[in-house]
Design a protein around this nucleic acid. Sequence first.
DNA 1: CGCTCTATTGACTAACTGGTTAGTAATATA
DNA 2: TATATTACTAACCAGTTAGTCAATAGAGCG
Lengths: 227, 227
Amino acid sequence: MELDVASRAPKIVRNPEASRAKILDAARIEFVTHGLSGGRVDRIAEQSGVNKNLIYHYFGSKDALYLAVLERIYADLRARQQDQDLRGLPAVEGMKRLVSNTFDHFVATPDLIRLMSIENIHYAEHLKSSGSTKALYSGLLDTIRILLKRGQDEGVFRANVDAVDLYLSISGLAYFFLSNQHTLSWLLDRDLAARRRVLKRRQHVVEMVLSYLTQASPAEAAGADPE
Amino acid sequence: MELDVASRAPKIVRNPEASRAKILDAARIEFVTHGLSGGRVDRIAEQSGVNKNLIYHYFGSKDALYLAVLERIYADLRARQQDQDLRGLPAVEGMKRLVSNTFDHFVATPDLIRLMSIENIHYAEHLKSSGSTKALYSGLLDTIRILLKRGQDEGVFRANVDAVDLYLSISGLAYFFLSNQHTLSWLLDRDLAARRRVLKRRQHVVEMVLSYLTQASPAEAAGADPE
DNA sequence: CGCTCTATTGACTAACTGGTTAGTAATATA
DNA sequence: TATATTACTAACCAGTTAGTCAATAGAGCG
């Protein structure tokens, strides 16, 4: 019981998992906000409240830390992407839900969109050096294929739709609007982030995809018998 | 006439316009390749073959140089964007051409796509401080409105299509596929840059937009009399 | 308690980076 | 021809940046 001199024991708390998580959280904000080249390790250390060297202790390098952020956000995406339950629905209903779910998920996760853009600016070099992200889309593509097949069997969807092309369209219709909202809002003189705009866009995207799917393909239409 | 000592007159060539152009060309490559934060003024000086301070002499700062690059590529876009002649075409034909022209222009100008992504990573702050880029889209939107109106008058296009939404869809369907080709090629296990893929995508995009436009809108279809 | 492992830190550094300074020479102007 | 302006250069600078070193101190274990 020493109460005389100011007992300067800095009382360091040791909590490796919490430190790791704090670093990762701060890194995510930093890279999402400033990009990879613009992201600063010193700022990540400051924001996470840990010593800079701890970052190197746990992650090794700035690039490796960025990759960890990237992998985590892709893992979250995979975890949240519940499209399995759509496979049992009627084709039109299932596809409507798939499109709006994709749209909603993009809207809800702006970090994902920014990181994807950043990663493409860097030619996806980090993603390619990752072992854990590859199998992400197979489930979603399978769901698309199942719904496509059902719709064709039901006679409500056109034939000869490539699942990858359809996925690219569903994503692209939402992605561009969100990823480029800053330049577009300026150039088009509209606030694309406004709630009304987003909801309107959502409906437009669903309608466009469903219109495409439910219209007879040109090959069929050009052919002789439309049943 | 002194011909004794080696006459060491370094013979500096003065060509302000050429120097300015060389700087701008090198800067464009640098920023497109590495982004704004990743772009290095020293590298631009080295690549353009001029002294670094000349860059500051002409452009003032790294950011101002980046803005000059951005403004020039937008000016090129405006110059090349010839959609006026589409306004006289029949609606379906005109719209098909508009969609494929947009797609082709994106494919032909990857620098534009990368700079747009980079600018959005930076929240379009530089674009907003530019005086010269604002009126870029009004002509294109007018063309879309004219074709939309004609298509509705001809009875081949659906009603209640917002020109901005349609523009966002036309662009988005092409943009995402191109801007994210590095991550997508990896994740989907396909080479999206392959010529066949690009051509297939082009056709898919045209078909999707035209399907949407030529299908009766849900409001109409739900209504009583389909003519 | 003493030993080892590792979480954690502050101080440090070499290389880099945007930008500046001071000066030279070609060209325009009077 | 004298003078001012402008294109251009080499060297430099102060601040930053990713990454390192050496040391301290909890925690688990015998």
